[in-house]
């Protein structure tokens, strides 16, 4: 799922325009963003704190199994990278299949 400081209304507009069907969660005061250590202070509108782009893969026990912290806004995670990582983890038995 996706997490940002956007309001639910703003996320709804994004989901509708892009056809996203996975959950979009709203973290308006960036508490969760801060808890994961991915805050980008004062980078938003009017100097608001926002999230830096980051992805975490959490297994069913609640442990972070993989993460991606880009150093370049333009170089984003590709879906095939995630499926590749998941396949590798399934093979390792780190994440049991359903």
């Amino acid at each position: 799922m996706a997490i940002s400081v956007d309001s639910p209304e703003e996320s709804r507009k994004l989901c509708q325009s892009q056809g996203y069907t996975f959950p979009f969660l709203s973290d308006p005061n960036a508490a969760t963003i801060r808890a994961y250590g991915v805050l980008h202070p004062h980078a938003g509108e009017d100097g608001h704190d926002i999230a830096r782009p980051a992805e975490f893969l959490v297994d069913r026990t609640g442990t972070i199994r993989w993460e991606n912290l880009t150093e370049n806004l333009l170089a984003r995670l590709r879906p095939e990278t995630v499926s590749h990582v998941l396949d590798g983890m399934l093979a390792d038995g780190a994440v049991r299949g359903k």
């Binding site: 799922m1 996706a2 997490i3 940002s4 400081v5 956007d6 703003e10 994004l14 959950p23 963003i33 994961y36 991915v38 980008h40 980078a43 938003g44 509108e45 608001h48 926002i50 999230a51 830096r52 782009p53 980051a54 992805e55 975490f56 893969l57 959490v58 297994d59 069913r60 609640g62 199994r65 806004l73 995670l77 995630v82 998941l86 983890m89 399934l90 994440v95 049991r96 299949g97 359903k98």
Partner: peptide, 18 residues
């Protein structure tokens, strides 16, 4: 709640559109 019955959950933090 999201982890229930799933093999993994991918959390995507993004900058948003404010």
């Amino acid at each position: 709640q999201l982890r229930q019955g799933k093999r993994a959950v991918l959390l995507i933090f993004y900058r948003g559109y404010w």
